[in-house]
Nucleic acid binder design. Structure first.
Length: 301
DNA sequence: CGCTCTACCTGTGTGC
DNA sequence: TGCACACAGGTAGAGC
């Protein structure tokens, strides 16, 4: 569920609620929180005693820098929430980890579908020497996140380079947008929104698009993200809420995602639903002309 | 090597 | 009302 805008809303919530606080306790309520952990260098409890100095984000990953070039890494998966609660509040259903703060507050990592993760890793320098992501001036990034590309809103993202890399992929453009290793932060909702705004059909081969078109797509995607962030993100249900439990409002402004059979806001043509890269995909076939032969397309190019 | 597909979970909505 | 099934915001790994 959470894509870049939703994760950024959570990050900002953590900054206002937890920055400057010291972690006084960590209780693991469900070991499955570690199932997707990678490059673990120490138990989660080793973060007890650390002061939260910043909350960093790259794409959909969050991390808290720890002493000795380590970091507490978090990913919300499909259904993860980070909620601020008083330490004596009832434990929410599906709570996986609880962090106690020195001001009497508590941070609950809640995750219905258990695709989320939380663990401690070591950090390494970024390849380009630039700050690792939003919310940090450090050029150190957790090792398991080093393969994640800079996100669409990162000022250090080079759109020319990214567009060239995207163009090398012999895959549908939507599959490339969902691939977090080239450019990160885009998930299923905003991929559909960005492609519609850029009038590109999701099944078009990335290699068949010009670099200029791809650069424009990345720019459009960052603009959609910025608008969603201003609305607090997209909430279809209570699975996505901010750290205080409030939903976002961008679902009211979605132009295409979830609007199957409804008229396109640009041309009125009914929006169609198809499967691309294994994901439900929404498209206006009039605004986003399909590729000449969307099906049989082998190694031609 | 590069790409597609599935598994990993719990919950909800829909159609019979 | 109950049951079976499809589907849901993500990712890594298996398999081709």
């Amino acid at each position: 569920m959470p894509e870049l805008p939703e994760v950024e809303v959570v990050r900002r919530g953590l900054v206002t609620h937890a920055r400057g606080r010291r972690l006084t306790g960590i209780e693991v309520c469900d070991e499955r929180i570690f199932r997707r952990a990678r490059h673990v260098c120490a138990p989660l409890e080793s973060a007890i005693g650390a002061r939260i100095t910043e909350v960093a984000r790259r794409g959909k990953y969050l991390w808290l820098p720890l002493p000795d070039s380590r970091a507490l890494v978090m990913h919300l998966g499909m259904s993860g929430q980070i909620l601020a609660n008083p330490s004596d509040a009832v434990r929410p259903r599906h709570t996986r980890v609880q962090f106690l703060l020195d001001d009497g507050g508590r941070i609950d990592f809640v995750d219905q579908r258990t695709f989320g993760a939380c663990w401690v890793s070591e950090c390494e320098p970024t390849v380009d020497g630039q700050p690792a992501g939003e919310g940090t001036s450090s050029a150190m990034i957790p090792i398991p996140l080093a393969h994640i590309g800079r996100d669409v809103c990162d000022p250090a993202l080079n759109r020319d380079t990214a567009a060239r890399r995207m163009r090398q992929a012999r895959r549908p453009i939507k599959a490339v947008l969902l691939d977090q290793t080239i450019v990160s932060g885009i998930g299923n909702i905003y991929a559909d929104e960005a492609l519609h705004a850029a009038t590109i059909h999701p099944l078009r081969w990335a290699s068949g698009l010009s670099c200029a078109r791809l650069r424009d797509l990345l720019l459009v995607a960052s603009e959609v993200m910025a608008r969603a962030l201003a609305q607090g993100g997209t909430s279809f249900d209570d699975l996505y809420v901010d750290i205080a439990g409030h939903p976002g409002y961008f679902q009211r402004e979605l132009a295409i995602y979830g609007r199957t059979s409804q008229p396109c806001l640009s041309c009125g043509y009914p929006i169609e639903r198809l499967i691309v890269a294994g994901r439900g995909t929404h498209v206006c076939p009039r605004c986003q002309p399909p590729p000449a032969r969307s099906r049989a397309r082998g190694r031609g190019a």
